[in-house]
């Protein structure tokens, strides 16, 4: 994966919203939005009771994730909705409650808050409150999240922690194209409502080999993507590429880092993280969202409970600052590679 600084350069070159690249590059190698697009094609093709909708979805979506779907599957299954997030999610819950797969798009995660009540009080409790008479398990809410270099307050946020406090939904975040396709198909077919955050910075920039066939990757299973022995790093989504660069950098100083992609934030795979920390004795969690009350706090507390006697230094977090997501100050706000490298070193030398 490219480093964050080179991503930023390419990001500026491409600009947000312009489409210079087609849906596929050389055979099998595609970017993240194309992988999402493939997953949606597969979902619509394999289940006639599946629907894709949201703001501007009909013409292909502002990030091109729904390109070609309306032409292929018709406007009754792939359609625009009015500009109203609580309406989109409420409508989707009703559709899902009738045994359909309702795949709703919220254009930016920053705009998901009008739908917060529908997600927290309705979708998440639909099965429980009815004694399992009703459920909206066919619901999947997709939303692009995270920094993009120039998004300011309202095109950059990472709101995952709000949703991780809600029993009854799952929260899933992929790190790249191959993961995105497999995890999205699992989320769509999972019998529980899922909030699926897509790292929008990587929509065009992350390119990798993605199998063309229909495949699913398991939810609630973390993955060790780099093995190491001195410290465990846990992250998800776009932040993993930054963490990976930090691991490479730390290795130059002889520090061996183990990197874990959590993938599903709730219900999360504590066992994989616990096993890794029992091996390394150290833990660092990193996310773009503000540090206070972020999901890193939950991971930190859980691992201290489970691995207290094995820990050789305090669990450390390298996260966004407790400010609104800033525009010109974005490079200061972000949990950058060097902030992580510094934290790795001070943790290992504690």
């Amino acid at each position: 994966m490219a480093s964050r600084s080179s991503l930023r350069r390419i990001g500026r070159l491409l600009g947000c919203g312009s489409s210079r690249r087609g849906l596929s590059t050389e055979a099998g190698r595609i970017n993240l939005f194309s992988a999402i697009n493939q997953a949606l094609h597969t979902a619509l093709e394999t289940d006639p009771r599946s629907y894709v909708f949201g703001e501007d979805v009909g013409f292909g979506g502002v990030f091109r994730c729904t390109t070609g779907l309306a032409d292929r599957f018709g406007k009754s299954r792939v359609f625009n909705t009015p500009l109203c997030e609580q309406g989109i999610v409420g409508f989707a819950i009703g559709l899902a409650a009738m045994g359909n797969r309702a795949i709703a798009e919220i254009q930016f995660a920053d705009y998901i808050f009008p739908a917060f009540d529908q997600i927290v009080n309705e979708a998440a409790k639909f099965r429980y409150r009815s004694g399992n008479q009703f459920n909206c398990g066919g619901l999947t809410i997709r939303a692009p999240y995270g920094a993009v270099g120039h998004g300011g307050h309202y095109h950059s946020q990472s709101p995952e922690a709000f949703f991780c406090h809600v029993p009854g939904i799952k929260v899933v975040i992929p790190r790249g194209p191959r993961q995105a396709k497999g995890l999205l198909l699992s989320s769509i077919r999972d019998p529980n409502p899922v909030v699926f955050f897509e790292p929008k910075w990587l929509y065009r920039l992350a390119v990798e080999e993605v199998p063309e066939e229909d495949y699913m990757l398991p939810l609630s299973e973390a993955e060790v993507i780099r093995e190491g022995s001195d410290i465990t790093l846990v992250g998800w989504g776009a932040q993993l590429s930054v963490m990976e660069q930090a691991c490479v950098e730390a290795e130059k100083d002889g520090i061996s880092c183990e990197l874990i992609d959590l993938k599903t934030l709730i219900p999360w795979d504590k066992e994989t993280v616990e096993a890794s920390v029992n091996k390394t004795g150290r833990l660092l969690v990193s996310h773009e969202a503000p540090i206070t009350g972020g999901f890193g706090a939950e991971i930190s507390a859980s691992i201290v409970e489970r691995c207290f006697l094995r820990l050789e230094s305090p669990v450390t977090r390298v996260c966004g600052l407790d400010t609104p997501f800033p525009l010109v100050f974005e490079p200061f706000y972000m949990p950058t590679k060097n902030k992580i490298v510094d934290a790795i070193k001070s943790t290992v030398n504690y």
Binding site: G90, F91, G94, L95, A102
Partner: peptide
């Protein structure tokens, strides 16, 4: 609430059932 009687389970928040009704009807 009764699935058998086509009566969705009541929830306390006000008006949340209205956009859901549009989705059920679309189905």
């Amino acid at each position: 609430g009764s699935e058998k009687l086509n009566y969705f389970t009541v929830s306390s928040p006000i008006a949340t059932q209205l956009p859901q009704a549009a989705g059920v009807a679309y189905s």
